[in-house]
Simulated scan of single mutants.
Amino acid sequence: MTETRPRRTLTNRNSWKTIRTLLRRIKSQSGTSEKSHPEVVWTTCKESSTTTETSTAVSIAEIQAPQVQKALVVARKGEYELRDDFPIPVVGDDEVMIRSYYVGLNPIDWKSVDYNFCLPEFPWVTGREMSGVVAQVGSAVTTFKEGDSVWTSTYYKDVRAGCFQEYVIVPSHTVLPIPSTVSFEAAACLGVAALTAAMTLWKWLGVPIPSTTTDDSEEQWLLIWGGSTVTGQFATQIASLSGIKVITVNSAETKALSEKLGASHVVVRDEKTDEELVDEIRQVTGGRITRAIDLVGTKTASLALDAVSKDAPVAFAPLAMMSSSHVIPENVIVHTVEMKQFVLDKGNVCYTEELGKLLEAGKLILPELHLVEGGLDVVQEGLEMLKKGNMKGKKLVVRM
């Protein structure tokens, strides 16, 4: 994708010079971004049919934004289509339009299409996280300007917010500046994994925010089943910074990764029965796990519940899936983590602010990236890679 060229060019060279002059004036009025990134030219121009001096007098009103864009859409049940004529909607007063540069891929992206959920209608655009450059802001937006480097987390019910398109429109409170310690491409993994980990711990499981952590003589344990997942990596670090002891369940290949991120103990699942895994967890923690996160599925959610405390109050977040028929112990509260609350409730901005502080201070190690070139044309290929699994702790990001 060529990011520094306008979508259309003028055949008349004099007219183009005039337009370029006008654009420079606009740019000088809007200021410049502190981050280095390719310039985004947000213009299309009317072609001139003459070469006279009067034909070069092009007004600002004649500089128009493109009306269509390229998008990977779910055209019908279980079927994608790549379209070049997908409409670009108008930006609302309190909304921001972002030109996409990097898109993070997540299991929910392929699962929603394969199992036909979170698709309000067809055609629809999926994709939950991205980083890019502000292309346009609504009249009520004062916190961002065109050219700012940002990241966002989106809600599936707004087709304009689907990240598998060139231009994404989201509420202004869901737009965050990219911290100086985070690369442009790595920022594309913050909208799902990092934010989910932070909100799950701080909002639902009651883990204290690191800046407010107080000394507690009582040992507290958090179980993370699936410690090498990108969400598990962020959760391990955030909990550790809060003084919580973390025990994770991993493969032998990723044991060292979780240890590096602060896990107090890593249970290697390879060649062990379910009973052996639960016994090891309970022996290491003394049966004192009061918080748990499952990132794998229904079977491991059940095993996680077997491993937690039998008498102390327990908060459990089954982030992958949990059977509705499972019997929940009386001392366990199962929290339904709804990340849509980040979009629907502006009060949740406090969590992104705290996450931003940790990132800016360099206290979080970002996941290793598996960067795929090719833009929207390779998103489906990337999703197939995710479906096969065994990413070994890497985060899959597509360069747009």
Rank of each mutant, 00 (worst) to 15 (best):
D274Y: 00
Q67Y: 00
V68T: 15
S30K: 15
H173L: 06
L176G: 00
G262E: 03
T214P: 02
S228P: 10
F86A: 08
T4N: 06
S324F: 04
V170T: 08
S112H: 03
T290H: 09
Q237T: 06
T52E: 08
S211C: 06
R399Q: 15
N116L: 01
D345C: 09
V378I: 08
R20D: 07
G286Y: 14
F117Q: 11
I365W: 01
E275L: 01
W151I: 01
D279N: 05
S55N: 08
K299D: 10
L369I: 15
L383W: 04
L10Y: 05
I247S: 00
T298C: 05
L364M: 10
V182S: 03
T126W: 04
S49N: 06
V249E: 05
S251N: 13
S183L: 10
P367G: 10
A61F: 06
I169F: 04
S211W: 01
L344R: 09
Q69S: 02
M321T: 14
W16C: 00
N12Q: 03
T336Q: 11
D94G: 07
M400P: 11
T18W: 03
R5K: 14
Y101S: 15
E253G: 00
C45L: 06
P107R: 04
M400C: 13
V141P: 13
G132W: 00
G382E: 05
I247T: 08
N106F: 00
V73F: 02
H37D: 02
N116M: 05
A315E: 13
K157I: 11
K357N: 11
V168E: 03
L10I: 02
A361Y: 03
E34H: 08
K272R: 12
A252D: 15
W42H: 14
T181K: 02
A194T: 04
R282W: 06
T2Q: 04
I63M: 14
P179S: 04
S324D: 14
S183Q: 09
A315N: 08
S149F: 01
D215I: 07
L344M: 11
S264F: 01
I244A: 00
M385R: 07
V349E: 12
T56R: 02
M321F: 08
L201V: 08
L190T: 13
L366K: 10
L241V: 04
Q67M: 07
I98M: 03
N250P: 05
P177V: 06
E53C: 00
S240M: 03
V308N: 09
T200R: 07
G127S: 08
L223E: 04
V308D: 13
R25F: 05
S36Q: 11
V168T: 14
R288Q: 13
V230N: 03
R269F: 01
L72A: 02
T196Y: 01
V332T: 09
K46F: 01
V159T: 13
T142W: 00
E79V: 12
K145A: 13
L359T: 11
V91E: 07
